[in-house]
Design a binder for these strands. Structure first.
Lengths: 145, 145
DNA sequence: AAAAACCCTGTAGCCGCTACAAGGTCAAAC
DNA sequence: GTTTGACCTTGTAGCGGCTACAGGGTTTTT
């Protein structure tokens, strides 16, 4: 299987495959006489593994670590679980931050009534007031923390 | 006010101030005889505005657009509100994606019971099964969509 | 007068790709 | 047999939003 076929089967760009090889996530395959990469089913399996981890938003460094761990079957599973849970905590933290953002942006947008000019608009005023460190719809109680 | 003082007052890195100037978010200030940037209170106000928008996770391009809009006070406020609401939708979409991720990672972690080896661990098996396109704890109903 | 703290420009690194340039190879159509 | 087109190769640069470092000059403090 050549790189285009591998990429198609995994649903990724050809460049991404080469990138993963450079980054040590995919073993360098054999080459044909003319220098083309020749992949086997193991490579596809590994590539799908990487993509699945990426779909869980894991950074490449952690996927690399998972691959290392999986190579040594004597390793305690706790290490894998810790990695997953640490990642989960990161995702949770980011989600909560976005949730707070949502509230702030909604408050901001609520300042605006249709049809008037920016000179009379609550949004820019809010944003500019923030420049003075004053309370605003975005960060109502920020200064109380 | 020199760049260090400005940066300190806004709570940003000196490099970030220069970066914003390069990116057209901050007007180039006057220079002293020896070439040092000399800022006034207007610059601090603008910098705080930019930082506030960044705290709302707006991309610099949108902040630039907001600055443009705010310069022309005859512009309809709807443009500002649309920008904010579009950004809000992006944030919402990302938050929902992260929420789904959380569930997947939790299901994954639940596969693991403490103390055993990776060979017997549900997590890596799940991740590797995914490489065959099978149903997994991470993506239980993905193939039904 | 020396040391420390500040400033300048330019460049490169982070992440996970993506795209482009400038070439070599291979299969099929004419 | 050659020409088209799809494929492959390497190397390099770009995205965003900074951050850091190198190698200098200036100002302030000791």
């Amino acid at each position: 299987m050549r790189i285009g076929e591998l990429a198609r089967q995994a649903g990724v760009d050809v460049q991404t495959v080469r990138y993963y090889e450079r980054e040590g996530l995919l073993d360098a395959p054999a080459r044909t006489a003319s220098g083309y990469r020749a992949y086997g089913p193991r490579h596809l399996e590994r590539l799908n593994f990487v993509r699945h981890c990426r779909s869980l938003d894991m950074p490449l460094a952690e996927i690399r670590r998972l691959i290392e761990l999986s190579r040594d079957t004597r390793v305690s599973c706790d290490q894998v679980n810790t990695l997953v849970r640490t990642h989960l905590e990161r995702v949770q933290a980011k989600r909560k931050a976005l949730q707070a953002l949502e509230g702030q942006l909604e408050a901001l947008s609520a300042q605006c009534e249709s049809g008037h000019r920016v000179a009379d608009c609550g949004i820019l005023e809010e944003l500019i007031h923030a420049a003075h460190g004053e309370a605003c719809a975005c960060h109502p109680a920020a200064s109380e923390a």
